[in-house]
Design a protein around this nucleic acid. Structure first.
Lengths: 156, 156
DNA sequence: TTGTTAGTTCTGCAAATTAAGAACTAAACA
DNA sequence: TGTTTAGTTCTTAATTTGCAGAACTAACAA
């Protein structure tokens, strides 16, 4: 099984991508795996290639891969007469993921509405600011939905 | 110093908000503090009131408060002839924060462009998908900027 | 039937996070 | 001058996280 060679630049890029994913809340190992699958010349890598290239243990790789599989961030193909799975980045999942994380962000709004609903009328100034934020987030939410629609239309 | 009473509903709402913030990457104690400042009837609470109401130690409160202060999530006022600081949620910071986290999200784009630039031409299909994602994210970024402009205009 | 491949699962450790409690400090008061 | 107040900082201590390494498994191969 041929092993993957990375240039210094590629290694650095993987680290930088890794940091980005970690900051977004992902664990270190999955972060590196997804970064590797984006950067390496080959786009389809086996379990062993991932372990070796990233210098992580099989258990770390197994957990990382399963996490990413169930999140839909990666998938794999197989070749007939070859028991190995070839893992690859599901690049197209990014649109969905962007959308999902936008929704999470904007999901705060529901909670803020509940907060406002239960607040005493007496804290008028505070309530008014809160109402403004809620209105803004609703606005943003609607507009973001429109952007996605606009994009789909534009693609045609 | 009068102590803060919370209804069962308020306590639950604080926990739910707390979980939201934790999922967004904030530590538990700061998450509860900000939630408390949103939910409690009084919008301006002292250090001691925060400690007592949330049942956290002074050190936990001190660290949480300083974190939130330096993130701009809360601020405080003082009353003349009263050494205490009265902490409150900077509700208006949410627009900025929303924007910041959008930018972080969309900042992935710069990295993806770098990835694409260093990829071999041979992985054409992959590169094409990547290019599509980049184009989409650029589109999204521009549109989001427009939304903010539109909002500011609309407020007048 | 024995071995090999492609992983998975289990056990345990090392490092990082988070908070408690106590000791400390700086300002204001008495 | 000592005392109280409003915090801060320091030192543990308790979790939690994340991974290595080894043992395991299931499928196929020889």
């Amino acid at each position: 099984m041929e092993n993957i060679k990375l240039t210094q630049d590629q290694k650095q890029l993987i680290e930088r991508l890794g940091v980005h994913y970690e900051r977004a809340g992902l664990q270190p190992a999955p972060s590196r795996v997804i970064a590797l699958l984006l950067v390496s010349d080959k786009t389809e890598l086996t379990f062993d290639q991932i372990c070796e290239t990233l210098k992580i243990s099989k258990s770390a790789a197994s957990n990382a891969i399963n996490l990413l599989l169930s999140a839909g961030t990666i998938d794999y193909i197989t070749l007939s007469g070859d028991r190995k799975r070839y893992f690859r980045s599901r690049v197209t999942s990014w649109k969905e993921e962007t959308r999902k994380s936008l929704n999470t962000m904007l999901g705060l709004n529901t909670l803020l509405q509940e907060v406002l609903d239960q607040r005493p009328k007496s804290s008028k100034e505070f309530n008014d600011s809160l109402q403004e934020v809620i209105t803004f987030m609703e606005f943003l939410h609607r507009e973001v939905d429109n952007i996605f629609i606009k994009w789909e239309a534009r693609k045609k």
